[in-house]
Simulated scan of single mutants.
Amino acid sequence: MSNEVLVLAYSGCSTCKNALKWLQTQGISARVRPIVDEPPTEAELAQWIDRSGLSVRKWLNTSGMSYRALGKAKVDSATDAQLRQWLAADGKLVKRPVLVDGQKVLVGFKPEAWAGHFGSRG
């Protein structure tokens, strides 16, 4: 297993900055991928959503402008396939950061969840 994790982050996101700072203090090397410039592809989402253990709807950044532009009613009536297409097309629609570490994917930054993951990483 690689010692480096992949983090999809947005440079203007304070949560992303806090997550990257947390990784650094834990001595965990991260390769940062700018989520706006390089959003997850539909193929990545197909794998990562499953690995995260979350529904595709939990991947939505519901506090962002992209979500508001779509509107709750449109999102609520969308299929999972449509949501994956929208997430792949607009990195700002994705809840961030997204951490990819081997087979495990974490969405959003919750220090306790990340600590639990890395504590059991071996």
Rank of each mutant, 00 (worst) to 15 (best):
D80W: 08
M1I: 08
V98M: 04
K17C: 05
L8E: 05
S14T: 09
S63N: 07
W22H: 09
K72I: 04
V32C: 04
S29E: 13
V56S: 06
G91L: 02
L60P: 00
W48P: 00
S66G: 11
P111E: 15
L8R: 05
I35G: 00
R57Q: 15
S120E: 12
V5Y: 00
V56R: 02
N3P: 09
Q47L: 15
V7E: 03
S120H: 15
A89W: 06
T15S: 13
F118G: 03
F109D: 01
I35E: 01
T41K: 02
D90E: 12
L20E: 02
E4L: 09
A30D: 01
I28T: 02
V105N: 02
M65S: 15
A19P: 04
I28G: 06
C16N: 06
G71C: 05
K17H: 13
N3G: 15
K92P: 00
L93G: 01
C16D: 03
A46C: 07
W59G: 01
T41L: 07
N3R: 10
M1P: 06
E112C: 12
K95V: 03
R57L: 14
K92H: 07
M1S: 15
S2E: 12
Q82F: 09
E44R: 08
G27F: 15
G122Q: 14
W22N: 12
P111A: 13
V100T: 07
L83N: 00
K74Q: 10
G64W: 08
G91S: 03
M65N: 14
W86G: 01
D37H: 04
P111M: 08
L8Y: 11
T79D: 13
P34F: 00
D90H: 05
D90K: 07
S55W: 14
P40R: 02
Q85H: 12
R57S: 11
N18K: 08
A73N: 12
S2I: 07
R84E: 07
T25V: 10
T15A: 06
Q24D: 13
R33Y: 00
R57P: 03
A88W: 07
L20I: 06
P39S: 05
V5H: 04
E42Y: 04
K21L: 12
L54G: 06
D80H: 12
W48E: 03
K110E: 11
V107C: 02
Q47M: 15
A73R: 14
G122E: 09
D80V: 09
S63P: 08
M65V: 15
G119N: 13
L70T: 11
N18G: 04
Q85L: 11
I49V: 10
L20P: 00
G71S: 10
W59L: 08
R51I: 10
Q103K: 13
A19T: 09
W48K: 01
A115C: 13
V7R: 00
L23Q: 01
K110W: 14
K104E: 06
S11L: 11
V75Y: 03
V100C: 04
S11A: 08
G64S: 13
S52K: 00
K21H: 04
Q82Y: 08
K74T: 12
V5I: 14
V7K: 03
G53L: 14
E4M: 08
L23H: 02
